[in-house]
Design a protein around this nucleic acid. Structure first.
Lengths: 161, 161
DNA sequence: GATTTCCTACTCGGATACGGTGTGTCCGAGTGAAACTGG
DNA sequence: CCAGTTTCACTCGGACACACCGTATCCGAGTAGGAAATC
């Protein structure tokens, strides 16, 4: 069970966009170049964020991406679901109803106990993600690497010139 | 991010083994036939459980698998980690240290804030799994489908004859 | 009849192919700005 | 000098290949039990 690599890129992009601010749009090329990552694939992930309403995209010259909301209102769950999709990790295929062990359909009105337990765990995971907005991650970065935000902002500003 | 299908099979197998009891070993062929699933692949999952010390395997005629511990001491986390492996879903590739945005290595002594936040969520997930032994799932099944345990046990007994 | 030997059938276990999803890349549609032309 | 028009470079957006891991399968090593031969 592995999470898509794009999630890491997306969260970093949200942080970068938050640091740059809503004034100017940042292109996918610039965001990819900042980490030396494949441009086109990076763009693909940003499109997913745009579809989810996390960032807004403007085409044409001087276009690019910018945050659609303030960092306080973008949770990690939003970003993860935008990239990974809404499908839960554990998918009950109802094998209990298959084979010679199967009973009458009336016995399967209640959900599978295993799926129930797994769903509970996943809900705990999602809750933890939902409780952490991008702003919180930003605060953690400000505490552990105080110079990162300002340095990043200046680099993107220099690219715009 | 999807979990391996084998997890569902493994948990069901643990429940079935718990219902049959430690007296007689159950073969992979029987467990697979019970749900009408591919035998060889099912065997592969059971091997993973055996490597993790969740079940014990005995070769030869009258051989098979049986639970290595009582259901109270087998958590869902044990089963999931046995099948999925210990690798966490989110793997930080440290892209923050790549590209022109990289700073001096001394700035990266503390762990990445994003990986930290993701790790916190995964820990909540694992904790929820660790808090639910197979015995709890068994109890839930006994509540929602009281006849399942006894019916299953009888079917496997009939196969042994 | 009891014991030893051998054999056979059955089990798990790891090594070997196939397919689907994530990964990576490409080119086209749309847009805004800048340059050019005419008044 | 100013307004209108044209052109063009730049952006996102979706459609197109490649690779790796999960899925599925097969055959071999090992073992227990039973049958046969011997005493």
């Amino acid at each position: 069970m592995k999470m898509s690599e794009g999630v890491e890129w997306a969260v970093h992009s949200c942080l970068n966009l938050a640091w740059v601010g809503p004034a100017g749009a940042v292109t996918a090329t610039q965001l990819a170049a900042f980490y030396d990552l494949p441009t086109a694939y990076f763009n693909k992930q940003l499109q997913a964020l745009a579809r989810a309403g996390i960032v807004t995209s403007t085409p044409g010259p001087r276009g690019g991406f910018r945050l659609a909301r303030v960092p306080e209102q973008i949770t990690l769950l939003d970003v993860v679901r935008a990239i990974e999709g809404p499908t839960p990790a554990f998918r009950c295929t109802e094998i209990r109803q298959r084979g010679p062990g199967a009973q009458a359909p009336e016995n399967y009105l209640l959900p599978c106990a295993i799926a129930h337990a797994m769903g509970r765990a996943e809900q705990a995971w999602q809750q933890s993600l939902a409780d952490q907005p991008i702003a919180d991650v930003d605060a953690d970065v400000a505490r552990t690497a105080p110079t990162a935000a300002e340095t990043t902002r200046r680099w993107f500003d220099s690219q715009r010139a």
